[in-house]
């Protein structure tokens, strides 16, 4: 049932956001560049003090105060199962909104906003060893580069977090 609704939501988004179609917000984590659909992105802010919250999965670093709004922050590195590193002046928090709640994504560095037409997007690799691969929506090719396009929905809500949510309820 809930799956149906999610699919429905996505359809709605796609229909309503024609101008944002095929536009991706790209950022860097580790060596690779990743892209998420621009319609999810609200703003980008610099790193700021994160208040730790107990009983969270490792990749949820805590909450920040975004002009009076308390939003959780997810470290994309640790979400991908990569080794964590010190935050520096290039570390950014990309604020995305999904299902009416805003969530901050901690990334190594933001890159650009680019258009990747659908025809240039390849399906995700079938064989993968990395635990992060389940978040891949497709591989976008542009100017000899490959951007890994992420499924924001899965990135935020896949597995563990849903379990947490269900325990909480």
């Amino acid at each position: 049932m809930s799956e149906e609704i999610e699919v429905l939501n996505e359809d709605l988004y796609d229909d309503g956001e024609d101008t944002m179609k095929d536009r991706y917000f790209t950022f860097q984590v580790g060596k690779e560049e990743y892209g998420i659909e621009i319609m999810y992105v609200i703003e980008v802010i610099g790193i700021q003090k994160i208040t730790e919250v107990p009983d969270m999965p490792v990749f949820v670093k805590g909450v920040i105060n975004l002009r009076g709004q308390v939003i959780p922050v997810m470290d994309v590195r640790s979400r991908f199962g990569m080794e964590e590193r010190q935050y520096d002046e290039r570390t950014c928090i990309v604020v995305v909104t999904i299902k009416d709640s805003a969530i901050g994504l901690l990334v190594d560095m933001v890159s650009d906003v680019i258009d990747i037409p659908e025809t240039n997007v390849d399906p995700p690799p079938k064989i993968s060893r990395k635990p992060g691969s389940r978040f891949i929506k497709g591989l976008g090719k542009i100017d000899n580069q490959v951007k890994i396009l992420l499924d924001v929905q899965k990135l935020l809500y896949d597995e563990e977090l849903e379990q947490i949510a269900s325990v909480a309820e």
Partner: peptide
């Protein structure tokens, strides 16, 4: 009192959070 984000859900032992005068969050 502000609720922690829906995304975070309920945490046992924490009823919410508040933003302090200096902008920091206190659970």
């Amino acid at each position: 009192i502000k609720g922690l984000s829906n995304y975070v859900g309920n945490i046992q032992g924490i009823s919410g959070c508040t933003i302090m005068g200096d902008g920091e969050i206190s659970l």
